[in-house]
Amino acid sequence: MAMSMRRALLPLHRMRFRNVKNAEASLEVRYPLPFVVPVRTKKRYFIPPAVGIKGKAAVSADQEAKARAAGVVLRQEYMERAINIACTAGVFDPYIPPEGDARLSSLSKEGLKQRTEQIKQGAASQLAIRKIKEHDAEFTTKAFPVKAQEIFVDAHNALTQFNKEKLHSLVTERCYPEMVRGNRYKTLRWHFVESLEPPKVVHARCPDMVSKGNLYGQVTVRMHSRQTLAVYDRFGRLMMGSEEEPRDVLEYLVLERHLVNPYGMWRLHGKIVPAWAPVKEPIVKTVMIPGPELKPGEEFEELNYEVPKPKAVQWHK
């Protein structure tokens, strides 16, 4: 009876021993060896000058082989630049304003010479105007200058109010950074007083970009007006200009439109500054004048300190 019970419990004992052995094996922790995966970065590796191009290629090939062996796929880096086809990158064949414009009368000798040169240069502008009219049926040389002046006024009002959304709809992507550059922490006060002469179209070009047939219309408008401009710094001090003193301004505005795009609009693209234009007035910068050193518990008003006047600075010779 005892032997029969022993024979019956022996298989159960062996099964229990195997389970315990398997559990001990499963609890045994084995730490894996360190595995290094090469990662491509922008760091450039130093190559001795004696190695040359072949050595550089061998080093890069060795790195790629190690990366492939580790199962890492290295993507090739491309230097890509964004291209904007909504506008061109500049002014094609810019208009050259005649010297002494808005000063010489058309009846003088020099005025007649300039008038004849403008007539000769107007042949290319007439061809460009014909192309523009093929894509824009509403374009006319009589009504367009008034529209261009409205765009100019609305764009500068949006600039003084820092309305970026409206400014983007009135100026091109090339003109926007030129208008907002340097205006941070400043206050602009600009006002359009009146127009001294009616604006007129003086130049027109119809270039293409990227591919033939991708046409852009560029029209130069001469605008002689009276404006006021005042620029204040971040402390509220006047840097240049005046809000009460209007000045006569002669400008040559370049407006552009993507003619192929049916939803394109005429926007301010740039401004032509003639070489004979007078130099702008220098900007008065705010300078900190060092004051007296105050002791603990001492106030500046009790000292009756007189602020020294700044020395005269010669801005231009």
Rank of each mutant, 00 (worst) to 15 (best):
A8V: 07
P11T: 12
R14M: 13
F17S: 12
V20Q: 00
E24H: 12
E24K: 14
V29Q: 14
P34M: 09
P34K: 02
F35D: 13
V37Q: 10
K42T: 09
Y45P: 09
A50M: 11
K54C: 12
A58S: 08
S60G: 13
S60D: 15
S60K: 13
D62T: 05
Q63Y: 14
A65F: 11
A67I: 07
A69L: 15
V72M: 05
L74S: 06
Q76L: 12
E77S: 04
I85W: 11
V91M: 05
F92I: 13
F92T: 13
Y95L: 11
P98E: 05
E99V: 14
D101H: 02
S106T: 12
E110Q: 14
L112E: 07
T116C: 15
T116I: 15
Q118K: 04
S125E: 03
K133T: 07
H135M: 05
F139A: 01
V146W: 00
V153S: 05
T160K: 07
H168L: 13
S169P: 02
G182P: 10
N183R: 06
R184S: 10
L188S: 08
L188E: 00
L188H: 03
R189H: 02
W190P: 00
F192N: 01
V193K: 15
L196E: 14
K200Y: 08
H203K: 02
V210S: 00
S211I: 00
K212L: 05
K212M: 13
R222C: 08
M223W: 14
H224E: 06
A230Q: 02
V231P: 01
R234L: 05
M240R: 04
E243V: 00
E243L: 06
P246G: 05
V249S: 12
V249D: 01
E251L: 15
V254Q: 07
M265E: 08
W266T: 09
R267E: 03
K271F: 03
V273W: 13
W276R: 10
K280L: 07
M288D: 10
G291Q: 09
E293C: 10
E293M: 04
L294M: 13
P296Y: 12
G297H: 03
N304W: 14
K309R: 06
P310A: 01
W315M: 11
